[in-house]
Write a protein that binds this DNA or RNA. Sequence first.
DNA 1: CCCGTGCCCTGGCGGC
DNA 2: TGCCGCCAGGGCACGG
Length: 270
Amino acid sequence: MPELPEVETIRRTLLKLIQGRSIVGIDVFYDKIIDHETNDFKTTLIGKRIEAIERVGKYLCLMIPPFALLVHLRMEGRFFIRDVRRSSAHDHVSFALDDGRFLIYHDTRKFGRMTLRTSEHYQDVPPLSKLGPEPKDANWEDIHARLKRRKIAVKTALLDQHVVCGLGNIYVDETLFKSGIHPMKRTDRLTRNDVRTLIESATTVLHDAVELGGTSIRTYTDALGVHGRFQNELKVHTKAGEPCPVCHQIITKQTVGGRGTYVCKSCQKK
DNA sequence: CCCGTGCCCTGGCGGC
DNA sequence: TGCCGCCAGGGCACGG
């Protein structure tokens, strides 16, 4: 569930806590989180310093020269800073830091993944090289040209990180509502104006959500356990049965591309 | 290349 | 109260 605004909030929080710290030990309690052999992973990172933390789409990139540790939190991945090595059965990776504390990767669903790349050019190789631009950097005419050749639901397209990156289920629903476009509208029927509106709406929604520290529904909190505040700004997502804030028609829930999807059928047209 | 489906996981919830 | 079954969901492998 962490999408771009939550990952950016985590990046900022984590940076203050661990920038400049060196890794002095690593414990891996569940090795499927890491797509490298465990011993290689440890020997590669131990003794090196966390110089910076970047973010590309929903990926967190811990810059540990000469390596970049790419982390995708997927549904419920979280980072904590603790004084003990492990305090939960859901703590899967524990990095001992040179100040005596531990950077802990915690994930109830075990969906998150970590992978190593060299810190030079790490954005130029998969998986990051395959990502589309963030909405704020996207050229809507390019996106329109791509989408008019396809026939998928616009929601599915916006969730596809190869088209644009950073949006997940919450912000796609909000983007579509803000744009007045139905999630099932086929991409080959989107007008140039539709796509321009979608990119502009996505940019605004993501920007506003970052400003408010992300959205806390379900289990998301940042590395300090601080909740975001964008859930108070949601217009349709999680609002089934409630009146649309614009036209007062009842918001409905349906499935689009296998995802729970909230829509105002009066404001959002196919 | 394009598109749909199923898988990975497990806490939580609905149903009885 | 207790237990069973099923769902959520990002990304990717796979098959048509």
